[in-house]
Design a protein around this nucleic acid. Sequence first.
RNA 1: GCCCACGUAGCUCAGUCGGUAGAGCACUUCCUUGGUAAGGAAGAGGUCGCCGGUUCAAUUCCGGCCGUGGGCUCCA
Length: 647
Amino acid sequence: MLVTIDDKSLEAAAGESCGQVLSRAISGKRLKNSVACLVDGQPRDLSAPVPEGTRELVPVLADSPQGLAIIRHSTAHIMAEAVKKLFPTAQVTIGPAIENGFYYDFAFERPFTPEDLEAIEAEMQKSIAANHPFSCTYVPKADAKALFASQGEAYKLEIMDENIEGDTVSLYRHGAFTDLCRGPHVPTTGMVKAFKLLSVAGAYWRGDEKRPMLQRIYGTAFAAEADLKTYLHHLEEAKKRDHRKLGTQLDLFSFSEEAGAGMAIWHPKGELVRTILEDFERKEHLRRGYQLVRGPQILKRELWERSGHYDNYRENMYFTEIDGQAYGIKPMNCLAHMLIYKSRVRSYRDLPQRYFELGVVHRHEKSGVLHGLMRVRQFTQDDAHILCRPDQLLEEITGVIKFVQDVVGLFGFDYEVELSTRPEKSIGSDEDWDRATKALTDALESLALPYDINEGDGAFYGPKIDIKLKDALDRRWQCATVQCDFTLPERFDLVYTDADGERKRPVMLHRVILGAVERFLGVLIEHTAGALPAWLAPVQARILIVTDAQKEFAAEALSRLRAAGIRAELDDRNEKLGFKVREAQMDKIPYMLVAGDKEKELGGLNVRLRSGENLGVKSLDEIVLLILADCQEPFKRGGMRYNFCSQ
RNA sequence: GCCCACGUAGCUCAGUCGGUAGAGCACUUCCUUGGUAAGGAAGAGGUCGCCGGUUCAAUUCCGGCCGUGGGCUCCA
């Protein structure tokens, strides 16, 4: 795999390409599966000459992550070639590889249509069939600018002016198409074995909404046709898990054009799930020393002016007027929590104060960003504000992260952690920022949580940790977050009397665990494909009768299950058992309890799980214990306590 | 907010190159009492998102609005 180059072989390799040296050292087959190589860790074309001083060469295999990125980026070039050939007036801009594919942004006078995409694909196939080599040349920047200027490629000129330092640029050519590019690329276009163009969408030039809107064509490519098929199949499957689809199918929630965009309407089953989840949250917060509080839905505008929300967040807020007095509908819960803190004199002994509220907030999100339950205009945050002394910061942050870990672990999510540090525009002293950032990193490290750093992406008032969960289509949604805040305590003049009798400023932590109940449920529905764990399932058990000879027996069994606290229902319709099982399966009900003559005689019910497994006939007592144990199981595993029997 | 696409029965979708519409599931009634993913028959259900324009005539063409989807920007 790894080819070490000593001085002697480097001399022998003089004038040879990396590919030639590698082909001598490794089997031809392996080289055939390679799309590029790493020269001392740097990705390079196989056709590149071996640079002086090279110590090692490593082939990059087509199906490795790096290999896929190179294939995808090369496919983007082939796509740009096809677009320029079919639509000569289109201007090329940039076309990187991304997580599951690639895109290329074009400036063109009319929108691309699905038919255009087909034509582009066909044109790409021609280029691939021709098996053009990708070649790299280094030219003076001035020459490259002359070349792109002659082709009317204004965006490429801008990139050279603003983004490329030095006097030399690299150009990649295949067939008749030349692009400004750093590379590397696959050796020839024929190495692209499997690709598909997926969609076209608008995208701002340089991601700036004040710049022109370009057209972005998304596509994907894989090392082999089978991998592409698998991926496309995965996309289809993921769409079936879409929480918007399942929300309708399972009758959990809906949106109504009449009610308004971004306003979820919770149906009985959905509201039940929410209630169970919120009840769980209240208990877990109380266990961890939080206090339950509740603020008003609208507060006087002056308060929002004082907090800075009016200046910084006004476009996202809704306002109203009462008796000539202006009010703002809360987009956040912190203000009332601070008023609670201020309602009496606080001693250092009183800290930390941890105020928890399932706070309903309204935010005027731009219409284009609304997305099912994931992005709505009214939502409920599991919000808390912790007011503590600076010396308590580390312990409080650690406690919050541990809390998040417990909850995320309970549901078995994949997640990513990001630490965002001080942005350019920020307030507060260096000392405060350093202490807060250190507290956040110390907390992450003490819990051995891997994390990425988002330099300069913190809030203007303090650094933060974000935890992002993935949805069915691999999109990331921010859920939990912990933010340090020195500003609001300042603005609202929050103080406590310290041991030395001095009045001091507490630090405020803003934090959420689930984030928003709505978003979290959206992600959870996709994560579980709608088969919610038994403790959260709106209907835990459904009794299915075989004939109406068991109606009475089944009704009796139902009331016994309900008396034991099981959320059960009865399907005594005049339908065949197979039909009822099918419906119960589609409703994702964890326990299907069949009542036939046999069961009636034995005084029990036949237990079928939604996995299809049949546990045989069990007594009602056994069934109750079975379901309750199933409900407790995730909590036991996570070392949490949540008592179902007390409900 | 921006670019593009879409909006037909409760749900999933056909259809109409301008002459007011159809299927499956669901719903109601009847037959069927059937043992682990769809038994049968009949019936009912739509001002084709809303408002305007063009036209003898608009669900169909045009415009505006509302809503949804894929992205961009922004965020829990």
